[in-house]
Design a protein around this nucleic acid. Structure first.
Lengths: 348, 348
DNA sequence: TTGTATGCGTTATCAC
DNA sequence: GTGATAACGCATACAA
């Protein structure tokens, strides 16, 4: 590794001059700057981020905390897309990304901790690594450890959940669900069932929006139509679908927690010998890749993960770079209806 | 942030004593150590990783480089699973993970670079961040920038591609394909087509293994049966499937590049009005989640992503921690056949 | 057994 | 305009 002093020697100037030249300070002569830049190029000089961070207390590194309910971690379709977009935007602004996790190994002992101390909380880990800010995406935001991080002085942006004291980027589930209902209603459906996922604020918004959208259209769905299942898990949706199909007053369209869960429904429907969308209509949520390569393509609501990730990165970075003028903000990102072909037109 | 000097003061000892106590050096009294540890706990002390890294030249941070062909990045199913497993193993050993990327933004200028210099190569970025080692997963390993990284002195482990001078963890594609062929053959199929993906060493291994496995069974597949398509893209596989179905001597079973591409095949087959597996059999590759919730479940070869990620982390860390005794090694991880139901039994 | 002093590579403050 | 020099927080060789 070539250091500042190496290029200083080569240029016949002091390290201070080189440092200032590279920061483009105005008290260095233009010719000197030019020469120094040239030599840096030649020698392949880049600063040492640890030394730099130590000195200026800015790491140009962002932490990412993701705690899924089912430990799916990075393999979670929705989050991995958000993260990818977040990463690209952060990178474009010169920031690196480091995962944050608590040192809590399964057995409660951290094997190779930097020092012989108890394991760190998320916040401690973030401070230890000196990240400038943290992106938090979480199934359950009310874990004490997560709350500690969110309540800290570190810039934090949360995904799909809002706190008073911290900016957030949330997918517009209210609008999403109402768009979905509108589309389904307009195709003639009146008996619309909704199988929802695990209890989170996202789910609550979707349920509320489901009821409200139907109410606005003079529909009061029976309780049997609103059922609880599990995100990304086809089995519960499969079971409930069979039950719904067996109702004497069965729905003509079923909305699922998400596209994966919807596949459980597809299997149940196939098993009963019904065709989609001729005999029964279905809709998913998320608009994941797979939903659009199935035949028929799923009617679903594509969440705008690119935009969510990008906005989250921008917000977090602006908070890091302008702490004074940063305002707490809840950014709502609308999704887009993918019409697909799984919701049929109902003639009365 | 509470520093070493803070706990030193509180304990009435010097920073050196505290530092050594925390590193559990044997030249510090047991009572002193105990007291220091207690105070650290109370004060919530944790070291500053930048300072520590600067001093000892070990960051306990691993870089991850992933360059996909299609910019799928983290959203790539196979890699995200490998990475998740890698991450968990690394974390269990006290390592953090940072993404490595070149500062090359689309327009060739890095907007917010630490200093006014040209953008960094992967290697330069890794050195800049001071990572202890790098995991490389790449569609094309022969890019100069990737080669530079792999040829450097930094410990590197590659995924699914081997170089002489650098350890690798590879999925056993030869065995995987032969297991698949064996299963299909044993169910009575003799006319087995193979649609393969983009040209990589992985693909080459699968093709070779396909030919060899058939040859061992006295089968010489016609050229029309071996076709080129694209990974994770259903369209090319869809098109080719139609062509295969229209052959006068059409195959009884088609093997696809991967499970996603296979879905393109399913659609083509459905469109022709054929049933799976009664009229035609199909097999995928990868064993992604979706493949096992479809009906019928796909016959496919599940790559052991957990094991690949875990082994890669272990290998990389051992290389970092024991550079002297580290041996270059190619670790081959076998997959597992998922029988599914998409390959039918053929009676002659 | 503990403390003092030095340096890791950088930036920033102040002289010159 | 440029150059010493003192931090930043930590680890270690060496003194005590």
């Amino acid at each position: 590794m070539v250091r500042l002093v190496d290029v200083a020697k080569r240029c016949g100037v002091s390290v201070a001059t080189v440092s200032k030249a590279l920061s483009d300070k105005k008290d260095i002569g233009e010719e000197t700057k030019e020469k120094i830049r040239k030599v840096c190029e030649e020698m392949g000089y880049f600063p040492n981020s640890s030394a730099r961070t130590l000195k200026i207390k800015r790491s140009y590194n962002l932490g990412v905390l993701f705690v899924a309910e089912d430990d799916s971690g990075l393999t979670h379709d929705y989050f991995s897309h958000v993260l990818e977009s977040f990463r690209m935007e952060a990178e474009a602004s010169g920031y690196d990304i480091t995962f944050i996790y608590s040192g809590q190994s399964p057995d409660g002992e951290s094997l190779n901790a930097p020092v012989a101390l108890r394991s760190m909380s998320y916040l401690e880990r973030a401070e230890y690594r000196g990240v400038d800010g943290v992106l938090v995406a979480c199934a359950n935001y009310y874990q004490p450890e997560v709350m500690e991080l969110i309540s800290s002085n570190l810039p934090v942006v949360t995904i799909d959940h809002s706190f008073d004291h911290c900016s957030s980027v949330v997918s517009d589930n209210v609008r999403g669900m109402s768009d979905l209902i509108e589309f389904i209603y307009d195709r003639g459906h009146r008996k619309i069932a909704f199988i929802y996922g695990n209890n989170t604020s996202v789910t609550q918004n979707r349920i509320a929006s489901y009821y409200r959208s139907l109410e606005e259209r003079g529909i009061d769905p029976p309780d049997q139509y609103v059922r609880s299942a599990v995100y990304r898990n086809p089995k519960p949706s499969y079971d409930i679908t069979l039950e719904l199909l067996d109702l004497k007053n069965s729905p003509t369209c079923i909305i699922y927690p998400d596209d994966y869960a919807c596949i459980g429904g597809l299997n149940a429907i196939k098993e009963r010998g019904y065709r989609i969308p001729e005999d029964i209509s279905v809709a998913g949520y998320d608009g994941v890749y797979i939903s659009q390569i199935l035949e028929p393509r799923l009617t679903t609501l594509r969440q705008n993960t690119e935009e969510i990730g990008r906005k989250a990165a921008r917000k977090l970075i602006s908070q890091v770079e302008n702490p004074k003028t940063a305002i707490i903000e809840k950014i709502i990102v609308p999704g887009r209806l993918l019409e697909g072909g799984s919701v049929g037109i109902l003639r009365s």
